[in-house]
Design a binder for these strands. Structure first.
Lengths: 262, 262
DNA sequence: CGGGAAGTTGAATATCATCAACGGTAGTGG
DNA sequence: CCACTACCGTTGATGATATTCAACTTCCCG
């Protein structure tokens, strides 16, 4: 829980500053970025906690999840290195979901009060956050149709491809990776049971489309997988990932601009 | 398609101005609100259309829906009188869904260009729109867990209660109403087939919890229904409806404020 | 090295989808 | 205004997909 600054952060540009105008770095450093270290299974916040900060994932992976009154639970999102956490509280006074580390994880805490003070001087940071918000909204919409419209196999394929793309955007190999989450967690995310996920992995492997060793996945026929995915998905991706959207490019959209305009 | 103004609109305060500071009405009237009349089945916009305007439902009901490449389709939202339409394009240059009238419908067109010009002088309108956006994001998140976590019966109960609440917020009877959508459309919205909806209506009626005559629904045991709903839902409602949130009340949230602040 | 969690696989089951037939309603045009 | 028709809705029988229950294996973590 040490106080540090983004410009001397060893993660360098893989995190928040990735999108920023270098000229704004000094201003970014005026935000006191408290570090939060979580061991596997620990939470950054829980449902109902007052939403006082948002978080940047410095290292590690987390899940956002909700629980019903009678104990059913669902994972509503996974958060990888460099992503923003806690934005689902933008429109609410308290966090609508809990955030739990899937492995040992380090977060940078961005207190809302500090953001409020500094965002006017950091247009590219604001842009980055708004983009992240856009992605989250789009993700929820996409998941809604993924769960509502797709078969179990299609859902798992969609999950693998999305995961692959997110890793690729961070510079990792797209066709070979180690999952940070259990079968149960994947199932919870996709509205399926862990046994179903296990069977589907076996089935896809037997069909020669993937290779599975525990949590180590290799996509052998990404083209075939992508065809399955494309047939069944509804909303073509429109919002670019933050990493693809360099500072100063086209405005998110006119509607958004008019809402956030002075 | 006549040009008119909000202050002499016969809908009066049931529509956009409901939340507004009366002092801002004259400024609101500088927005040219073109009228759009749709017959049942006609669309206000389709997937991929450039997002040039948002819409207020003056009269009638619409559905937002998406389609997959291989023809499956899902309804992602219904829009009642007084609600805002087209906000799902906030973060995208084109509409990610189509909007189709379920009955003869009248919309007020709010061109983005006009909004951009007038929003700085209409803080309560901007607030209204941002709240509408918040509700939509919350709705998508809730639907995601509704479809992922709930049984068919729970989903239908959730739908009926939500519908009831939305009608009540508009001053209609909460426990007796006429659905504007078919069984198939309800099913599409809930990730179920029309036969399943039909059977569930019959089953709930036989259990004495509702009364069904075609599309006329009466909730006989709203308390029982609400218990089913509460047990199975994950995210407690936090964002108030626009109608409940009078102008000048507490800020939406600190996070939001910091993002939209100058 | 031991114990517990995670994963796999099989068999039985449940839930919802599909296929099919039929009745009713509302909307259309004569 | 009535009759016709197309769509909507209901219900039953059958079937597919994913769940549940259960036994067993493997892998980590301590």
């Amino acid at each position: 829980m040490t106080d540090q600054h983004c410009s001397n952060c060893p993660m360098g540009r893989s995190c928040l500053p990735a999108d920023l105008d270098p000229a704004e770095l000094p201003a970014l450093d005026t935000v006191p970025t408290r570090r939060l270290r979580l061991k596997k299974g620990e939470t950054a916040y829980r449902v109902g906690d007052p939403a006082l900060a948002i978080y940047a994932v410095r290292l590690g992976t987390l899940k956002s999840h909700v629980v019903t009154e009678d104990g059913r639970s669902q994972i509503v999102g996974f958060h990888l290195q460099g992503e923003i956490l806690g934005l689902d509280s933008v429109f609410a006074p308290t966090h609508p979901s809990s955030a739990t580390a899937l492995e040992d994880t380090q977060l940078c805490v961005l207190p809302v009060s500090a953001l409020q003070a500094v965002l006017p001087r950091l247009p590219t940071l604001r842009r980055h956050l708004v983009l992240a918000l856009a992605q989250e909204a789009q993700h929820d919409r996409a998941m809604m149709t993924t769960i509502g419209l797709m078969t179990a196999e299609e859902r798992l394929v969609a999950f693998l491809l999305q995961h692959s793309e997110r890793l690729a955007a961070r510079g990792f190999a797209p066709n070979e990776f180690v999952l940070r989450m259990s079968r149960e967690e994947i199932g919870s995310y996709l509205g399926l049971k862990l046994e179903t996920i296990s069977r589907l992995f076996s089935r896809l492997a037997e069909a020669g489309q993937i290779e599975v060793h525990h949590r180590h996945i290799r996509l052998l026929r990404p083209d075939v997988l992508r065809r399955i995915y494309r047939r069944s998905r509804s909303v073509p991706a429109t919002v670019r990932t933050a990493h693809h959207c360099a500072a100063g490019t086209e405005p998110a959209t006119a509607v958004l601009e008019s809402l956030t305009a002075l």
